[in-house]
Every structure is written in structure tokens, then in C-alpha cells.
Lab assay of single mutants.
Amino acid sequence: TTYKLILNGKTLKGETTTEAVDAETAERVFKEYAKKNGVDGEWTYDDATKTFTSTE
């Protein structure tokens, strides 16, 4: 399943996707990605669109 991440950081904005077996796995991948890029925001998830959003 393809999951999408929308980053709305103070210094980094953008989108990326990952293939994962479930939302929990995708969330771990995306949170590590955000951390590596210095984004520490509030997380939301929309199951209908398989989209995570992190907003600082």
C-alpha cells in the first residue's frame, strides 16, 4: 500500500510517499524521515486517503 506524507515544517515543506504493509509501519518511516529533516510537528492521519500530515 502506498502512503503519503505532507510536511508543513517551518524550514521544510513538501511531500513524499512510501510503500508499507500498514499505516503503523508507514508512520514509523515518516516520523524517522521528518526527524532526519529537522521537522518536529503535530501529526494527523487520514485513512481514506492514506495520508499523514506533520505541521509545525
Rank of each mutant, 00 (worst) to 15 (best):
T51S: 04
T1W: 12
T1Y: 14
G9L: 07
T51H: 01
K10L: 14
T25D: 08
E56V: 08
A20K: 02
K10Y: 11
N8F: 12
G14W: 15
E15I: 13
S54R: 04
Y45E: 01
K10W: 13
E27H: 12
E42A: 12
G41L: 08
A48Y: 10
E56W: 09
T55R: 07
A23F: 14
S54L: 15
R28L: 10
K50Q: 09
T44M: 09
N8L: 13
T55K: 07
T18E: 04
Y45N: 00
N8C: 14
A48G: 08
E32T: 07
E24A: 14
E32Y: 06
T55Q: 07
V39C: 08
K31Q: 07
A26L: 01
T17G: 03
T55V: 09
E19N: 12
W43F: 09
T51A: 03
T53C: 07
F52P: 00
V39S: 04
E42Q: 12
N37W: 15
A34G: 02
Y3F: 11
G9N: 05
W43D: 00
T55W: 09
W43N: 01
D40A: 11
K31S: 04
T1M: 11
K50W: 05
A48N: 12
D40S: 11
G14T: 15
Y45S: 01
G38D: 06
Y45F: 06
K50L: 07
R28Q: 10
K4E: 02
V21S: 11
K31V: 06
K4N: 05
T17S: 11
I6D: 02
K35Y: 10
V21T: 11
G38I: 03
N37K: 13
T25F: 07
G41D: 04
Y33T: 02
L5V: 03
A26Q: 00
S54N: 11
E15F: 14
T44Y: 09
E56S: 06
V29S: 05
I6E: 03
F30P: 00
T25Y: 06
Y3M: 02
S54E: 04
V21Q: 13
A20H: 03
E19W: 15
T18I: 15
E15C: 15
T11I: 11
Y3P: 02
D40N: 14
T11K: 11
T18Q: 05
T51Y: 01
D22N: 10
T16H: 14
T51R: 02
K35G: 05
K31M: 08
S54Y: 13
E19R: 13
E19L: 14
L7K: 00
L7A: 02
A48I: 11
F30T: 00
V39N: 04
T18A: 09
E19P: 04
G38H: 07
K36S: 11
K13A: 08
D46P: 01
K50G: 04
G9V: 05
T44I: 08
K13P: 04
E15V: 14
A26T: 00
G38Q: 06
T17P: 01
D46L: 03
K36W: 08
E42S: 11
V39Q: 04
R28S: 08
K13S: 10
D22Y: 03
Y45W: 03
L12W: 15
T25K: 05
K35D: 06
E32N: 07
T2L: 14
T2N: 07
A48H: 10
T55Y: 09
V39H: 10
G9K: 03
T44P: 00
Y45R: 01
